[in-house]
């Protein structure tokens, strides 16, 4: 085996290297490589079935990779002497016995690591389940189940948090709450890695993005770069001299559309350039504005091929 020096730098890092997972003939994750850093919220974005949950299950050792590896803090999950204090994971919403109360579920997990009951009450209060902690989980709403899952993740006070679709089923208050919670946790220097198929949600929570489709890495970038680099931003011009302006703007790499008379949508250039061009030729402008694409648009564009391909495949079955 390759010898490595003790790597302090990997504390808080989630490292995925050439991870491949096949279930029978179906490839869920295909040669995926990325790293998640501490101190920021990293979003894990992809359409349903893209391999997000499979990747997370590989990280916490539930599924063995077909090839490649997943490490946290430089170690494979099963090497941890006290996994709950290293990594907190919210897996699929209800990873709880329906007949057990929320309190007993947390208590049973706490006891494996000798975590005191004080801490169990602490996380119950933190996620706002105090009133229902003694009730059987089977009667919980999806939102309450998510809160319990988050309590489980926080139980060992770990430096690395991995949350699979934590926003699912939460009401608007809950969504706001978790957004603040996760940002706060990241601000403490923890690693926060959350998956979602909701681009809008990640846009407001995450700073960094890992985007996958069909189990392959599509993008590993900041949210800002993801949006601006998507080619979706364009300049909208309203001018009585639109036709003449278009002639002057035309050039390599610039595409111009005219959705209605007197309106131009120019991409491949900047508002400043358009303004200067108009001024240089004495053309009147009524409106000049840069339309930034939404994260949603960027995501749709990036994953369009992946989704289309999969739909075709499933349609052919």
């Amino acid at each position: 085996m390759e010898r490595r020096p003790a790597r302090r730098s990997v504390v808080g890092m989630i490292e995925i290297e050439h991870l491949t997972k096949r279930y029978g003939k179906k490839t869920a994750v295909d040669d995926l490589t990325f790293a998640v850093k501490p101190g920021v919220v990293t979003g894990f974005l992809g359409p349903n079935g893209a391999g997000k949950s499979t990747t997370i299950r590989a990280i916490v050792g539930l599924d063995a990779p077909t090839a490649g590896l997943a490490r946290v803090n430089g170690k494979h999950y099963s090497e941890f002497r006290s996994p709950l204090t290293e990594v907190g994971a919210l897996l699929e919403a209800k990873s709880v016995h329906a007949g057990r109360s929320a309190y007993k579920h947390l208590l049973a997990l706490a006891r494996t690591h000798g975590i005191p009951t004080r801490r169990v009450h602490e996380v119950i209060d933190l996620v706002g389940l105090h009133e229902v902690a003694g009730k059987r989980v089977g009667g919980f709403s999806l939102g309450m189940g998510q809160r319990l899952g988050i309590a489980v993740a926080l139980l060992g006070d770990p430096a690395v948090l991995i949350l699979d679709e934590p926003v699912n089923g939460l009401d608007p208050d809950g969504v706001k709450w978790i957004r603040l919670l996760l940002k706060g946790l990241a601000a403490e220097g923890r690693t926060v890695f959350l998956s979602s198929h909701l681009m809008s949600e990640l846009a407001q929570t995450a700073e960094h993005l890992i985007v996958i489709g069909q189990g392959r890495l599509l993008a590993d970038t900041t949210v800002d770069d993801f949006v601006s680099g998507s080619g979706q931003s364009r300049v909208r011009v309203v001018s009585p001299d639109a036709a003449r302006l278009a002639e002057h703007l035309a050039g390599p790499g610039v595409s111009i559309a005219s959705p209605e008379r007197g309106v131009l949508e120019v991409s491949g250039t900047e508002a400043a350039v358009v303004g200067q061009t108009a001024a240089a030729h004495g053309l009147v402008l009524h409106e000049l504005r840069t339309d930034r694409g939404s994260l949603e648009d960027a995501f749709m564009q990036l994953t369009a091929d992946a989704v289309e391909y999969r739909n075709t495949l499933e349609g052919a079955k």
Binding site: V60, L62, K94, A98
Partner: peptide
């Protein structure tokens, strides 16, 4: 019930 996922992530 899926609680095996919690159990096994605590004792991998």
């Amino acid at each position: 019930t899926g609680s095996i996922r919690s159990t096994m992530s605590a004792a991998p």
